[in-house]
């Protein structure tokens, strides 16, 4: 099996960390991974996006034109990338920051998750990317949630390991919201 997922948001939302996390989780499951980042010149506030491809065999193209799953964290990303999702694919939307009422995306399953709100309820808006990761594994079924826990240890620097339980909770909350 070959999976691909596209994450986009603005710098500071942890888009690249989310991609890294999914990569480590896939490696944990013995898969080959390609993580392809792209970002604006600015460190914060600019556009940030990444594509993660993982497979049992060859990962093939790190560039994906029509992603199977896109996780879009802000309005700008939604406006630009939602329509690119593959037919039959999934678009997971941060409904705290994105208004998609008037947008018609035929052939694409749109999943609304109020990611900022959930992260705030979990205690820190910076965990928005964790909520997003939880929603992704719930909807895609591509990775085990246990692998994500293991991945946190690899993706986060040692000094932040104390935050792992809170991050796991945020992922679970994201998964729950996506299930509803």
């Amino acid at each position: 099996m070959r999976y691909d997922v596209f994450f986009a948001g603005y710098g500071g939302q942890g888009v690249l960390l989310a991609g890294n996390l999914l990569s480590y989780a896939a490696i944990h499951e013995g898969k080959n991974v390609s993580f392809f980042p792209a970002y604006g010149v600015e460190k914060r506030g600019g556009a940030a996006m990444c594509t993660v491809v993982f497979a049992d065999g060859d990962t093939g193209s790190p560039v994906v034109g029509n992603p199977s799953v896109s996780v879009l964290l802000n309005q700008l990303s939604f406006d630009k990338y939602a329509a690119k999702v593959k037919q039959g694919g999934i678009c997971i939307v941060n409904s705290s920051l994105i208004n998609c009422d008037e947008v018609d995306l035929p052939g694409i399953e749109v999943v609304l998750v109020p990611m900022n709100q959930i992260a705030l309820e979990m205690g820190d808006v910076r965990m928005v990317n964790m909520v997003a990761c939880g929603a992704y594994i719930e909807k895609s079924g591509a990775l085990q949630s246990k692998s994500l826990e293991a991945a946190l240890k690899k993706a986060l620097p040692e000094r932040n390991h104390k935050l792992i339980p809170a991050n796991v909770k945020a992922m679970e909350a994201g998964a729950l919201a996506a299930r509803a």
Partner: peptide, 9 residues
Amino acid sequence: SVIGQMKES
């Protein structure tokens, strides 16, 4: 920069 910047296992 695709091959240089991307991360793989």
